[in-house]
Structure formats: C-alpha cells, structure tokens
Design a protein around this nucleic acid. Sequence first.
RNA 1: GUCCCCAUCGUCCAGAGGCCCAGGACGUGGCCCUUUCAAGGCCAAAACACGGGUUCGAAUCCCGUUGGGGACGCCA
Length: 509
Amino acid sequence: MMRVRFAPSPTGQLHVGNARTALFNWLLAHGRDGTFILRIEDTDAERSTRESEAGILDDLRWLGLDWDEGPDVGGQHGPYRQSERLHLYASYANELLSGQHAYSCFCTSTRLDADRQADLAAGRPPRYHGHCRGLSRAEAQARIDAGERPVVRFRVPQGIEVRFRDLVRGEVIFNTDVIGDFVIVRSDSRPQYNFAVVVDDALMEVSHVIRGEDHISNTPRQILLYRALGFAPPEFAHLSLVMGPDHTPLSKRHGATSVTEFRVRGYLPEALVNYLALIGWSPRGAAPEQAEQDELLPIDELARRFRIEAVGHSAGIFDPEKLAWMNRHYMKAAAPSRLAAEALRYFTARGFITRRTDAAMDYLVSLLPMAVGSVDRLEEIADRVRFVFQFDPAASLASPEVLGVLEEPGAHDVVAALAEELASAGRLDRETFRAAAGRVRERTGQKGRALFHPIRVVLTGEAGGPELDLAVPAIERGAELPASSGVARVTGCRERARLFAAAVGVRSA
RNA sequence: GUCCCCAUCGUCCAGAGGCCCAGGACGUGGCCCUUUCAAGGCCAAAACACGGGUUCGAAUCCCGUUGGGGACGCCA
C-alpha cells in the first residue's frame, strides 16, 4: 500500500514550489490508489502560526489536492501536527539515549561557532567537533541536575557510506565523514526537524518520501536515524527546485510566488495545477501514442499518467507566460456561470456590481463573451468591460490614443452625425446599431476604420476593446437595469453620444 | 571551502546508441482574418555547454572541464 505525505511548516503562505511538491505527491497517490497524508511541521514555535496553517489548507483545497489523513480529517496515524506529537519524540529520543545512539551535549553556541569557523578556514566541511561525545550519562545527568540544559545529539557512525536509491536520481552516496553529530532534540526539548520527520514518517507508515531537492542532504542523516530506531527506511524521491527567470530561487521579486497570490490575481486552480505538473515532468513520455493534447490535461488524467521515475533531474524555471496561456485556455473551457461567480469579486471591488443578485449575475454572464478568450486572468475580465460601467468623456479626451482617433480626417463629422442619429433612436440592439452606423456612413462618407474607430471612441471612451456589435448591446442592456438589480448605473449609448459630442465641441453639419 | 545534485531551442519538455542535419508547447517574428485592441489560423527563426574517450555509429554510455543549483543551524 502506497502512502505518501506532504509536510509543510505553517510559517507563511503556500509557495508554488511547495504546491508542486504537494501535487506530485497527490498525483502519485491518486494514480496508484495510494493514501495522501497531510502533516503539519510546526515544531518551530517561533514562526509557526495557526493562521498560516489554515491558509495552507485552504490553498491545497482550492487546488483540489485533498488529503486522506490530516489534522482536520484525522486518520489512524494521528495526531497530524508535530506539536501534538511531542511525547512520541521524547520517547524515541530516550530510546536512542539509552542505546548510546545519542548523547547530551552542553557546548555553547560560542564554541560551536568558533569550531565552524575553524573548519571553514581549514577547508573542511563544518561539523560538530564531538566535545561532548565522550560524556558519560552520569556526568550528563549531574550537569542537568545542576541546571544546565543540553541538546541531544545523534552519534553519527564515522567513516561509512550511506547510500540510497533515489527514485528520480538513481543511486546517491554520502560519506558520513562530512556529517557531524547533529542535534535531534533542542535544549528546550523540542525535536529537531530530521528527527521528528523520521519518527513521523516511520510511525505514519509513509512508503514514499517525495520532497524538494533541498532535502537530499538530509536523507543520509534520516537513514541513519531509521537504522538506529530499528525502522525500515521508505523510498525517497527528490524533486528539483523551481527557480525564477534569473535562475535564482523563486522569490518575491519575481512577482507572485504563493498560491494565494495567484488565486487573488484571478488564476483558475486547474490552470495552476496543470502548469505546475509540467515543470519537471511531461505526461507525454507516459503515453507516446497520444502526441496530441499532451499538455492540457485535467488533474485526474495527469494522475493516471504520472510516473515518479519520469520526473526530470534539472531545476525548472517558473514561466508566468505559459501559466497565463494555460489560464486563458481554462477560462475559455470553464462554464460561464462558474466564471461569472469567480469574476464577481473583481466587479464588486471596482464598484461595477454593488450587490449579488440573479439579475446582476445574469448580466455579468452576458458580458463574458466580450472578455473571455482575450484576457489572461479573471481580474482582467472586469478591466476589459470597464467601459460599460465607466463613461467619462473628459477623462477619455486626456488619452493620447483617443485624441489620435479624433484627429483623423472626418472623425468630428462622425461624432456629430452619430449623436444626431442616436438622439432619435430607441434602445439599440445589434441590428439597430448597425443600421444607425450605416446612416452615419451615408451622411459623412466615412467607412470602415474611419467610421467605426470614432464611433468606438464616442460610445466606449476607449480606442480599443471588444467588438462594437457586442459592446453596444451590452451597454444598452445595462442601461435598462434598475438600481435594485445590484448593477452600477450604466450610461446608455444615446446619452454617451450626446455627452461626447458636447465634450468635443462638435456641431452638427 | 567541503559534500551532493544537475546540464537539449529564450523557457518547459520529448528523445532511454542508429528512426534526430533533433520533435512538441509557451514566448518571439512574419502572414492571414478583422471596423479597433485582443483572440484565432498558418508559416518561420531558435538548442544537443566544452574537451576527451567507448563504439561501425552518441544528444543518448564513461571521464574531465566549465557553468548552475542545493546542503553544511538548537530553520524546516
């Protein structure tokens, strides 16, 4: 039975690199009918918070990475928060202590620092010098009784090779000469990372440890711990890291790095999941018969094709452009009602929709065709149709693009003629708008771009945007909505033409 | 500094000795479509880091160099 786990420490938001690690674990579990465990590594009381734990759980759920065992759902191997497992670590630490696999260390940080500096200066790998290695338990106990607070160090057998077969990298060998006796219990008696992880993974019967490459050098330490504790080590797989475009670890200055940020900016979870799965892995190798459609795949299909052995060895660079492309794809594929529900918050944030009502949602859905397909993110949908809700000729006239349109020969004639034609027109739909545009063409002699570009500017206040055939009816429908609909007031086309003509100061010919 | 990992188009991948003067996707450029901006369609440019081996034959195997990344904590 395959059992995998994702073990974040709740010290901030879920980073996309870690989300990818979680995803690979999830894919492996789901492709093989395994169990996915969520464990919270909150032994660092200083930095761990319940808020970030909740945030991480939220982000994982949003991504669709559900877990079978975890702090909120429980399971047969709980508790699933390290802070609630302290008694277990204490018990195993004592076992190691009495078996001479570990010893108390009273070295001061000053001394440790000095040793480290000396090692570095001499070109040796910095490691614990072993001052307290020979201390007897009686001596140690005496010092503890005298009030000293030691750490517990694991006695690393020197001069041996620790090797393991990494599922993605193959055989990896470390010599213990480069590993010093490391701390397993801190002076305040909280467990140190490597120790807690081994106790937990063993007790939780984790069969495959899949984690970031930054943990590869922890692996020999952990294997040594497994042996000393009498546990069988699991399989290991180390995923290469995700970097920024400049080949440095993905960080804030590269833009959005946390799942929350992508969510807030209007990415769809299936897009992020699909994109993340493709960093360091390709579904293609698994099903070469399907050359087509081998990148855009739903999470279940990804799981079906996923093979940990096929994961790449080299670091991947996070490419926001490709993510944007995928998001565009998934927005086009999404049901309009869902898209409207997801995009609603951006409309309310901008004051375009003041209250969620059926009428408002229907109207939002009707606006979607003007934006979906041409924008990358949900947030941009609202920006793309902004002209519907905001119409201010004076502000538009401050735009160089708009001014440029109006400077075209005959543009003013079109503005004037349109205002007149619309003054007598009723509610415009696609057909009546076209008819009106036709009359303006006849009156001014302008056609094509010279005709429609000024019309666009007059009616939308912008030099670019969705097709007028769509935009005009959308404005008109909005203008008819009562205030009780929850949709902000929309200025109708006739009014727009009048206001714009006045602002430009054109007179009818 | 020491140890570990890595190395195919700008980016993500395919390629598990001959199928490759290297294939797909994003991005880029051009063309088409078009009343605008996008979107969409078509086409194009673009890579096996370098040097040695092994082999009839290497992007694929081995060694080295260079480059990149990671680790070396009472952080995880």
